[in-house]
Computed example of a mutant assay.
Amino acid sequence: MNTSNVATWFEIPAVDLARAVRFYETVFAIRLIQEPCPSGMTMAVFPADGEAVRGCLIQHEAYKPGADGTVVYLNGGDDLSAPLARAEEAGARIVVPKTLITPEIGYFAQFIDSEGNRVGLYSMR
């Protein structure tokens, strides 16, 4: 187990999984992998290499999207401005624009996704 990461898995709730998949595939210019799940859940997994933190979009009656509570920060790449702009074009509402934390730590931004979740982006530039 890679103990250098506190986070190991994340789940972003979706009311409409197909809509959420389109949104995140557009924002990150990637393809999510839909996987079967037990208990009537449906999920689409974000691609990840090696021991990277993995996660998914998940749809189930027990999962409710929301803008209050825990915020997951996703990798904004070399400069989070690009995925943030694509998020806005895909219908996201920007709630925190690209903001410098410190020069040593980098930048963050937050948006409300297609499902109503508050999601963050992080990058060094």
Rank of each mutant, 00 (worst) to 15 (best):
E89R: 10
E61L: 05
L121P: 12
T3G: 00
A62Y: 04
A14V: 08
P38N: 10
A44E: 11
A48Y: 11
A82H: 13
A14M: 13
L121G: 09
R54Y: 09
L32S: 03
L57I: 02
V96Q: 13
M1S: 10
D78Q: 12
I101P: 00
Q34G: 08
I105S: 00
G106N: 15
A92Q: 01
G76T: 01
V95P: 08
Y24D: 06
F46E: 00
A85F: 03
Y122L: 08
E11I: 05
F108Y: 05
V71C: 11
E51A: 15
V71L: 04
F10D: 08
D49C: 07
A7S: 12
R54W: 13
A52S: 13
A85T: 07
A90Q: 07
V27M: 00
V72M: 08
Y63F: 13
L57Y: 05
V119A: 10
R22N: 14
V95S: 12
R93W: 15
A87M: 06
Q34E: 05
F28L: 09
E35P: 04
V45Y: 09
D113R: 00
I30C: 14
M43W: 06
R54A: 12
S39W: 06
A62I: 12
D49R: 10
P83E: 13
V119G: 06
A14C: 11
C56D: 02
E25G: 07
F23D: 04
R86V: 01
N5W: 00
T99L: 12
A20L: 11
S114A: 07
Y63S: 11
A90H: 02
M43P: 04
R118N: 13
G69W: 01
G120Y: 07
I94P: 11
A29R: 15
Y24V: 08
S4G: 05
T3M: 00
F28T: 14
E11W: 04
A14E: 11
Y73L: 04
E88T: 08
S39F: 06
V15S: 14
R118Y: 13
S123H: 13
L121V: 01
P65N: 10
G40P: 10
T26A: 15
T3Y: 01
R125K: 15
